[in-house]
Write a protein that binds this DNA or RNA. Structure first.
Length: 279
DNA sequence: CAATCGTCCTGCGGGC
DNA sequence: TGCCCGCAGGACGATT
């Protein structure tokens, strides 16, 4: 599932390929992905709009277009963009079934195609004016990799509740989903069900540092592709080789050798070391 | 009022 | 072998 490192990797890839390109047309077989207007209207509106910039806010992709329009895309769980889909035979991603669920195609003025593959059809695509975009994003918390996201700021935005749930709450701070929440808490040696109010200063500091560290490290490796995420060339991120907790249930903890446990916490599959991460 | 549940969706894996 | 059930989960709305 695309979290901050995967969305940022996507943004970087897109910027290198489609900046300053103009949309010629768009196709879909899944009209419900287009949330704020009918697909017919979207198709009319997107034509001839130029991509002036591409950025990320939390897990959202934002294409800044000409005429003061914005294309907002949320990949949710299984969405990913593919540039110039159907790579040459034998090319990276060609044999990967995850790249075959093409739900939308954006035709560009260089005769290339930007496609959206999304197995579960949960992605969101919206064409918005500035005020509408701001309104949709207004509840999002701060960016954890920004310089001004200090330890003081981190402590200030936290609310009471199970720490795992808090880490994944986009209104507190953005970018962390199920994979990185488990990795952050493993590194910080904190039990995912521990209440924020019961965390010591030392534990808070470890979670804060682990958040920055894990997200940066995952970004460096192009994200995690355990199941569905692919980069815009259809290839995989390599951070999955670095995972210490996520989907390692039944295997030995790299720190203490205890068998990693899996438990449903806040409706999410959660992986942790019962020895290193005590409640 | 906060916590939990249901919804969207479909491929895949486990069990029989 | 083949079928069916249930699981995976980001975000949001509904419910308790």
């Amino acid at each position: 599932m695309p979290e901050l490192p995967e969305v940022q990797t996507t943004v970087s890839g897109l910027k290198s390929k489609v900046l300053n390109r103009t949309f010629v047309d768009v196709w879909t077989d899944t009209e419900k992905l287009f949330k704020n207007m009918s697909f017919g209207d979207f198709r009319k509106e997107i034509k001839n709009k130029k991509i002036k910039d591409i950025r990320r806010r939390g897990k959202n992709l934002i294409f800044e277009l000409s005429e003061e329009y914005f294309l907002l895309v949320h990949l949710k769980m299984t969405g990913h963009f593919l540039y110039d889909e159907c790579p040459p035979a034998g090319g990276q991603g060609q044999e990967d079934s995850m790249n075959r669920f093409i739900r939308a195609r954006f035709f560009l003025d260089n005769d290339k195609v930007l496609a959206l593959s999304d197995l579960r059809k949960f992605a969101k695509i919206e064409l918005l004016k500035k005020e509408e975009l701001d309104k949709e994003l207004e509840l999002l918390g701060p960016e954890p990799l920004e310089k001004d996201f200090t330890f003081e700021k981190f402590k200030k935005v936290l609310k009471k509740g199970k720490i795992k749930q808090i880490l994944m709450n986009q209104n507190i701070f953005v970018g962390v989903g199920n994979i990185y929440a488990d990795e952050i808490l493993w590194q910080a040696e904190v039990h995912p069900e521990k209440n924020v109010l019961d965390l010591s200063e030392k534990e808070l500091k470890k979670i804060y540092l682990a958040t920055k560290d894990i997200l940066l490290e995952a970004l460096k490796f192009g994200g995690t592709s355990t199941s569905d995420y692919r980069n815009i060339e259809g290839g995989r991120g390599t951070f999955e080789k670095k995972l210490k907790a996520y989907q390692r249930q039944g295997q030995k903890c790299f720190r203490c050798g205890t068998i990693i446990k899996r438990k449903k916490i806040a409706q999410r599959g959660t992986h942790f070391c019962p020895t290193c991460q005590k409640l």
